[in-house]
Every structure is written in structure tokens, then in C-alpha cells.
């Protein structure tokens, strides 16, 4: 085990892989930024709307369940710890649900659904030569495939995060009210009065950064696929793993910068 971990070849490959990833990530990020105007073309907007539908709207069912259960778990734990202290419960709900769980669990749900799907879709298009077919039509593959996916996934992550936070808080307090632990209206009012603009903005900033990372990483893994069909599952798993690691790392960094 130790020998494997300290194998210079393995370490070298990991460093080269990470370097390639960051180089590719920056290229795709700046390309998307430069070519954002491509969204003005109706076929590109169609891809954008499809992406928002798939990543945002179709994910709402699963996100509702995860958010409701998370809210219920947090309120149950908090009320068992602090009793009927509405102000403290509201603060803890904000710290956990708005600051951390909302952005993080929404990102994880979207990584599970859309990151693997996007990476494998683009990988299979690349392997089938469809990227070249777009060039034959005079269409820049980056404008048609990359820009609407980056914009669509990023917007969806922000919207889904906001929806997650609202659902978790409402469902958590609804459960607490149903079990007689806390009064519903007073608790919700307590959360609203405790909530500051900075809390909301930082959590949405997190969601925005996660959305960018998830979309660009998924496109990067999909578009770099070459060779045979075995590259498709490799692209999907590569994108999911890299996204999970990066999202957790960024979550820690953003929380440290704004809340410590």
C-alpha cells in the first residue's frame, strides 16, 4: 500500500493529470466567458433551455425529498439540543441549511444527475465524430455545445440551491410544528429576522462557483474523450469524482474566507 502510494510514476501521473485538468478548465472557462454572446443564437438558446430543464427542473423531485429530509433532520437535532429556543434554532438552521447544506447537497445532487450525463453525452458525441460534423456546418463546437451547458448548469445550480434552502427550512419547521416542538409561523418569522443579506449572497456565490465548476469540469471530461466507447464511462466517472473533490474543497475555502 505504502509502496503504491509513494510510487513516483503514480504521483507523476496524478500531478500531470491535475495540471492538464486545470489548464483545460481555464481554457474552457475563458472560452465560455468570451463567447457568452453565442447565447443570442436561437439554436444555442434551445440547448440552454434543454439544459436548464434537465439540470434544474427535472432535478426538483429528488432535491425536494433531500431538502425536506435534511430540514427535518436538522430541526429534530436542534430542538432536541436547545429545546424551544426559537432564536437559537433559527441561527443554527441558517448556519447549517443556508450556509452549508443548501449549496453542498444541491451541488452533490446535480453532480450525480447532470455531471455524469453531460460528460458521457459529450464523450459519445466526440467519439461518434459529431464535433467534426458541427465544424462541417460552420458551427463552432464550443459555441454550440459548451457555452449553453456552462450557462444552463450554472444557473440551475443557483436556482436549485435557493429552492433547496427554502424547502429545507419550511419542511423542517413544518415537521417540528407537527410534532409540537416549535410553533411554525413564529419559527419562520425568527429565521427571516435572523437572515442577513450576506448569508444569502455568500450561499448563492457558493452555488454560482459550484455551478461553474460542475459544468466546466463535466464538459472538459466529455470533450477530451478519445478512442473507443470505453472512454464514455471513464469520462463520466472522472467528471463526477473531480467535481466532488473540487466542490468540497471550494466549500471549505469559501466558508473560511467569509465566515471565520
Amino acid at each position: 500500500m505504502g509502496t503504491t502510494l509513494l510510487n513516483p510514476g503514480r504521483i507523476g501521473r496524478a500531478v500531470l493529470g491535475a495540471t492538464d485538468y486545470w489548464k483545460g478548465f481555464h481554457e474552457l472557462f475563458f472560452y465560455s466567458l468570451r463567447r457568452l454572446g453565442a447565447l443570442g443564437r436561437p439554436p444555442v438558446r434551445q440547448v440552454l433551455f434543454k439544459q436548464i430543464y434537465f439540470t434544474g427542473i427535472e432535478a426538483l423531485g429528488a432535491v425536494t425529498v433531500i431538502a425536506a429530509l435534511s430540514g427535518i433532520v436538522v430541526t429534530t437535532q436542534v430542538t432536541s439540543l436547545v429545546g424551544q429556543d426559537i432564536a437559537l434554532t433559527a441561527k443554527i438552521m441558517l448556519w447549517t441549511v443556508v450556509r452549508e447544506l443548501g449549496p453542498l447537497l444541491s451541488a452533490i445532487a446535480i453532480i450525480a444527475r447532470s455531471s455524469s450525463a453531460t460528460a458521457s453525452e459529450l464523450a459519445s458525441m466526440k467519439i461518434r465524430g459529431e464535433i467534426d460534423h458541427l465544424r462541417f456546418m460552420g458551427i463552432a463546437p464550443g459555441d454550440y455545445l459548451l457555452v449553453p451547458r456552462v450557462a444552463g448548469i450554472t444557473l440551475s445550480v443557483v436556482a436549485v440551491t435557493f429552492y433547496f434552502q427554502m424547502t429545507a427550512i419550511v419542511m423542517g419547521y413544518a415537521f417540528a410544528a407537527a410534532t409540537g416542538s416549535l410553533p411554525f409561523v413564529k419559527s419562520i418569522t425568527g429565521v427571516i429576522s435572523t437572515l442577513s443579506m450576506i448569508e444569502v449572497l455568500v450561499s448563492l456565490l457558493k452555488a454560482f462557483v459550484f455551478g461553474l465548476v460542475i459544468s466546466i469540469t463535466s464538459c472538459y471530461y466529455g470533450l477530451r474523450a478519445t478512442g473507443t466507447v470505453t472512454a464514455i464511462p471513464r469520462a463520466a466517472t472522472g467528471a463526477v469524482m473531480r467535481n466532488l473533490l473540487t466542490v468540497f474543497l471550494l466549500d471549505g475555502i469559501i466558508s473560511y474566507v467569509f465566515f471565520v
Binding site: 459519445s124 461518434r128 465524430g129 459529431e130 467534426d132 460534423h133 465544424r135 462541417f136 456546418m137 460552420g138
Partner: peptide
């Protein structure tokens, strides 16, 4: 390529 039409053998359609 906007002035060139290409008809690939397999159709070259977007899947």
C-alpha cells in the same frame, strides 16, 4: 465551411 455543404457517408447527424 459555411459556403461548403458536406454530406457525410453516415449522414453526420447530431445524435
Amino acid at each position: 465551411f459555411r459556403r461548403i455543404g458536406v454530406v457525410p457517408a453516415d449522414g453526420g447527424l447530431i445524435s
